[in-house]
């Protein structure tokens, strides 16, 4: 193994400390028994108890999960089609506009997206709610899905699709039975990404929400605007834990698949 230089080791250590210490502090203080948010008052899980008895957080969590699920599914379908059109669609009228529209939402500030969609929805619907949040979230999440799926499609050997067609498969048959199984990992990553993006979003949801459709970020934001709340620390800890476990499982399983594949290949030759 190559030895790391002092400089590199220091910059990595400091860098990751900066990235992780704030979250670790947040997690630790969610178990603080005291009322003061910065002074340790003994270990306690009382904030978790309060959190689970607070209807409005539970309601908001349920709304958020439903919105995120619908967004992720819809934007995965649309984003995968977008990627396929961009990578395999060849030339068509307005292609530049199309690819511009798929990249712009990636960097567009949330306030602009939120405001513009709100103005559209006001013209389309009498009342806004979960549906409008899903439509808004899908519009930007599908662009992220498209980026993830495009990069997989670009490295995917096009002769596989040609081979399927050569063996008698129609274009649709080829997409379902050859292309889709091979880009599946990227499609799944895209779904997870869209799910998290929807779960996280505050600004666009605030613009496009309506009565009875308060999402968790909206609820959290209105709580913490005026200061630190121990329940929110507890809630944050739960969310961090879920994400960490999810990412760990995902990366371990993909690492195991890679290792198995390498072993198979060595055995074959």
């Amino acid at each position: 193994m190559k030895k790391m230089s002092w400089f590199n080791l220091t910059s990595l250590t400091l860098g990751f400390a900066f990235l992780y210490i704030p979250m670790i502090i947040l997690v630790i203080f969610s178990f603080n028994g005291g009322r003061n948010v910065a002074i340790w008052g003994g270990f306690s899980t009382k904030w978790y108890g309060e959190l689970f008895h607070d209807e409005k957080f539970l309601d908001a969590a349920w709304v958020t999960l439903r919105v995120a699920f619908a967004t992720a599914t819809l934007s995965t379908v649309l984003g995968t089609i977008t990627a396929y059109v961009l990578v395999r669609g060849g030339k068509f009228y307005g292609r530049t506009l199309f690819s511009g529209m798929t990249y712009a939402p990636l960097v567009m500030p949330d306030v602009i997206l939120g405001l513009s969609l709100l103005l559209l929805f006001k013209a389309m619907f009498n009342q806004m709610g979960m549906l409008t949040i899903v439509l808004a979230h899908t519009t930007f999440a599908m662009c992220y899905v498209s980026v993830v799926v495009s990069s997989r499609l670009l490295t995917f050997d096009q002769s596989l699709e040609e081979a399927a067609s050569d063996l008698g498969a129609s274009a649709f048959d080829t997409f379902i039975n050859v292309t889709l199984p091979n880009i599946a990992p990227a499609v799944i990553s895209g779904w997870l990404l869209a799910f998290t993006l929807s779960l996280d979003d505050l600004v666009i949801a605030s613009f496009t929400t309506g009565p009875g459709a308060t999402t968790l970020p909206i609820e959290i934001f209105s709580e913490v605007r005026r200061g630190v709340k121990p329940q929110i620390n507890a809630l944050s800890t739960i969310m961090i834990a879920i994400v960490t476990v999810g990412v760990l499982i995902f990366s371990f399983s993909s690492k195991r698949r890679t290792l198995k594949r390498i072993a198979d290949e060595q055995q074959a030759n």
């Binding site: 050997d157 002769s159 596989l160 040609e162 081979a163 399927a164 050569d166 063996l167 050859v178 199984p181 091979n182």
Partner: peptide, 10 residues
């Protein structure tokens, strides 16, 4: 039918 240079096995 065609046998591809890369074999193009699924």
């Amino acid at each position: 039918n065609m046998m591809f240079q890369s074999y193009a096995l699924f």
